[in-house]
């Protein structure tokens, strides 16, 4: 092994990489917020009485779950380009991850909805609650408790998926910044090992804060 590690340049790049981590977090949060919105629509659509909504929801979910996330990002970046829709790499990455998140979360929400027994809704209604009240006060809190853990899991997934942005040319997220430094100096191992540490800390930050939130939210 005749290789000398040069950690100093990597540490010099650290401030810029941390700014990149912020962009990574931003994309992940945005994709989760949009993903949850679409997932709710998909979960509602999948149980709609209109066939066209059902078909659209089911094909979205199955496509999102049965093709690679990288493929979905490619489709947003290169595929839509040939239809004349040119997204820049940030938007394409966001669109790809949102598509993916929505597909997975729709299934989660459907499971969560099904896990709350119908008898509870009936009980709430017979106590005089309206339909919306029953959903908001009885179904929602229980469903939220069930989907909370899968939701945080998906958040970690979203952070990990943002690293794919570099493949469609994103250069200001954590992986993108790392790659920019890498092509200038070819200290691949040092830069990417440092990036790995930052990603690990980001993921831990999400899981730990989710655990604290769960502890605060779900006690009687």
């Amino acid at each position: 092994m005749n290789y000398t590690f040069h950690w100093l340049p990597a540490f010099r790049a650290l401030p810029e990489m941390l700014w990149g981590a912020l962009v990574t977090l931003e994309i992940a949060v945005l994709s989760m917020v949009l993903g949850v919105l679409f997932a709710v629509l998909l979960a509602v659509g999948a149980s709609s009485q209109y066939r066209i909504f059902r078909a659209a929801a089911v094909s979205w979910v199955e496509l999102a779950r049965n093709t690679p996330a990288l493929f979905q990002i490619y489709m947003a970046y290169f595929g839509l380009g040939s239809l004349g829709i040119h997204l820049d790499s940030f938007v394409a990455l966001l669109a790809g991850i949102t598509f993916n998140n929505a597909g997975y979360l729709a299934e989660t929400f459907r499971g969560g909805l099904r896990a709350v027994p119908q008898t509870q809704v009936r009980a709430a209604r017979s106590l005089g609650m309206g339909q919306i009240q029953a959903f908001r006060l009885v179904v929602m809190p229980q469903m939220f408790r069930i989907v909370f853990y899968p939701l945080t899991n998906q958040m970690v997934w979203a952070i990990l998926m943002t690293s794919l942005g570099v493949i469609v040319g994103l250069n200001n997220d954590l992986t993108g910044v790392t790659q920019e430094y890498n092509v200038r100096s070819f200290r691949t191992f040092e830069y990417f090992a440092l990036a790995a540490v930052i990603y690990y800390l980001l993921a831990k930050f999400v899981t730990v804060s989710a655990r604290l939130m769960a502890w605060r939210l779900f006690r009687y």
Binding site: L160, M161, T162, S163, L164, T188, F192, A196, Y199, A203
Partner: peptide
């Protein structure tokens, strides 16, 4: 907790 892409490169 680390993106697979980063694991592969490292």
């Amino acid at each position: 907790s680390i993106p697979l892409l980063i694991q592969l490169v490292v």
